[in-house]
Design a binder for these strands. Sequence first.
DNA 1: TCCCGTATG
Length: 762
Amino acid sequence: MERKNRTYTLLEDSESDGETARERGKEKKSKDRDKGKKRKHLRQKRDESPSSSEEDSKKRSLCYSFNLLDAADPQIWISSCDGPPSNNNIVSSYFLQESEPELSQAEKQKQSLQEVRRSLPIFPYRQDLLAAIRDHQILVIEGETGSGKTTQIPQYLLEDVQYKLSGTRMKIGCTQPRRVAAMSVAARVAQEMSVKLGNEVGYSIRFEDCTSERTILKYMTDGMLLREFLTEPDLASYSVIIIDEAHERTLHTDILFGLIKDIARFRPDLKVLVASATLDTERFSCFFDDAPVFRIPGRRFPVDIYYTKAPEADYLEACVVSVLQIHVTQPAGDVLVFLTGQEEIEACCELLQERCRRLGSKISELIVLPIYANLPSDMQAKIFNPTPPGARKVVVATNIAETSLTIDGIIYVIDPGFCKQKSYNARTGMESLIVTPCSRASANQRAGRAGRVAAGKCFRLYTAWAFKHEMEETSIPEIQRTNLGNVVLLLKSLGINDLIHFDFMDPPPHETLVLALEQLYALGALNHLGELTKLGRRMAELPVDPMLSKMILASEHYKCSEEILTVAAMLSVNNSIFYRPKDKVVHADNARMNFVVPGGDHIVLLNVYTQSGYSTQWCFENFIQFRSMKRARDVRDQLEGLMDRIEVELSSCSGESVPIRKAVTAGYFYHTARLSKGGYKTVKHQQTVFVHPNSSLFEEQPRWMIYHELVFTTKEFMRQVIEIESGWLLEVAPHYYKNKELEDSSSKKMPRKQGKAREELG
DNA sequence: TCCCGTATG
């Protein structure tokens, strides 16, 4: 195993920081805590022969980490315990991986665990790290994957004498971007500390709080800590907050940055650690008032990087050929191919299988396996099966394999350099998902996947020039690519009124904030001064988007809260409820048609939920994603549990459609479209939009519709629509709609099928 | 006429 030289660097600029922090501390003690204040395509050409490029000056050698313990890198994936094993969420567990069949003495096991701990790259830095944490309130930790930072730093703190002596024992909180990471890391640390998971060491994720009063170390998702701000705006029960995987720049992590930087000012006793992979640590340091950076190396095997000599036009074909070349010319080792989505992956797998069939016995066995988030779990699990001797495994993946899961045995990575990226246009309120060149950081992450178990090779299907000049250094942070309605409501409820001047590390587009504020005002969540109303406060209690929240609150008036809770839960997973594999499109579409009822897609979703048998078998037969159904049930249960708090009584309209659609309208009146020549026009922006072909109303043409979301793919599509009557708009939002707006001036000529759906409703 | 990259509360 090759290791990079261990270098210890502690960048220090702010000599007076400790001083001022202490002074602030004195100030704080004398005053009451003021909680109210808180608040190009890269044209590509494949190398003729990847292995023959020794002389190629473009060949690079990078080192990447070998990772046993990092949060983002689960090594073994097993089915979760609850429910049938085949179709559940896959859950990782270091715990099971570590437990050996021979039941030797617990003592012996404990010893070997401590040996493993001492062998981690971070171990030699233990004392310096503790000293740095003692001397600085905020510390940026640059730790490569596999350094052990996620599991070890909290333990070092807990073992440290200083920490033990520092008065009241308060919690250490450590955030992770993903649920599985929070769970598996907590399990690992509990094992290392010989405590029961949920006692001293626990985790907190949505739907699952595995902590107790004894918990002093809590791993959690970043979104969960954000929610905790609502009940504890100064995080008083924490003495240390660790923001892990900060480089991923998730929406929630970015908001946490601003909030934590703020509370750190009047809580000098709070220690903040921002842990990130290499890259960007200077930016974190800069944002946190020049906080020092502490560097820890990781463990890694070298990965040779190969580029193409010229751009390649057809990267799918290039992938297929590259895989086959590796298979024929390279020593044993599995291959990981990064593509952008389900369709590409299915096409690639088909091509590979077809060519292998044609080559027949001339080549050894090639096992081709797809993986993407929407693939049913039992099919996902196949990628973790060990490759039989003599065969080679090829995993064709989306960027799910970039951070969310790790496959053992990968030696070769093929990277065409693209990914699908969501963007949000605040002027139209439209989302789009577009294939774009990925960032250099992303490309390096992909390459690193080849160097986990041994030295590896990464074949980049673009030129070294393109890598250097056409790719961005890092990806655009999520906060700049997404609708912020939810975030704005949360910040408002934390008492942060001036969002335009909120301390964002990378501020979102101005229009995004303005649209979010505008919509919250229209919903009645904000008054004309931009302050939260009573309604707004109730809306903020629910972990859903503002319009959905308003819809739920409105359902009380229409006596259909039971149904609306279901609709809300189903909408929150709607993009993946119907399973539609390419080879069974007809069957899948027929199965879906069986659920169609009049009124629109929301009513269809309600119908699916009502009819759904809680079994994998039922889901399989009806082309429904079991995982999504399970999630919908979880969301619904959670929301139902919150109804008390927001004072909504549970009631049912026995599935009658009009009250349900009126409640939806009360939340989504901003999303109205009216029939016009050649499609629909949104009422507020006069934008031409179309009914999505998957909609139950695709062939109907009701005059007025409410859409759940607007997405641009090949056209401007409304996804999830219901039919409404224009009069309802005046009923639910008289402050927003004028009678004049709703007059039908343009519809002298009625389209063929107009009104059909309504007749059926009776 | 479709196409859902990945997460999260």
